[in-house]
């Protein structure tokens, strides 16, 4: 199973509570550049939301030191102690959900903690679950296929 932050863009009112809560929770400041969720005006009172879907896992496949792993709940996490700060994960992220702040060594992303959900006045955010998919399994299958056989 994959636990993730489900985004209901059609309900978003663009108040920015989620962004403020997120950056406060993880960086102790209110700064959109330090938030793991992003809100972009899309015109006509609509908003585009960006946060990791936890499913594509291109970052997991790309990390040269396996600092990016998946928890038992199916959430993609970065181990700060292992991260070498190469930003390859930022480059391969297809939605821009993997972020970094210039000059800071380790990138960051949504880990579906749910803090932002509590502060959303419009029910635009929800912690949800979905099934594994071929895409989400690929990094593990690729690594397993190349791994040395344990029995020779």
């Amino acid at each position: 199973m994959i636990k993730y932050l489900k985004l209901h863009e059609d309900r978003c009112v663009g108040c920015g509570n989620c962004v403020a809560t997120c950056s406060r929770t993880y960086f102790k400041k209110e700064d959109p550049a330090h938030a793991r969720i992003q809100v972009f005006p899309a015109g006509s009172g609509k908003f585009h939301l960006v946060a990791c879907d936890q499913e594509c896992r291109k970052c997991v496949a790309e990390c040269p030191v396996q600092a990016i792993t998946v928890t038992a709940q199916g959430v993609v996490m970065i181990n700060k102690n292992l991260c070498v700060g190469c930003l390859a994960c930022v480059a391969v992220c297809p939605t821009g959900a993997m972020r970094y702040y210039p000059g800071e060594p380790v990138p960051f992303k949504c880990i579906a903690c749910g803090e932002c959900v509590k502060t959303c006045p419009a029910n635009a955010l929800e912690i949800a679950e979905k099934e594994d998919s071929p895409m989400s399994r690929l990094p593990f299958e690729a690594a397993a296929a190349a791994a040395k056989e344990t029995l020779k």
Binding site: A61, V65, C86, A88, A146
Partner: peptide, 20 residues
Amino acid sequence: FSQNLPDGCWYGCTLACAHA
């Protein structure tokens, strides 16, 4: 070659040409 692996010969090389 095994595919979908970050086959760089140093960290952060996304050109990743070191296949096996």
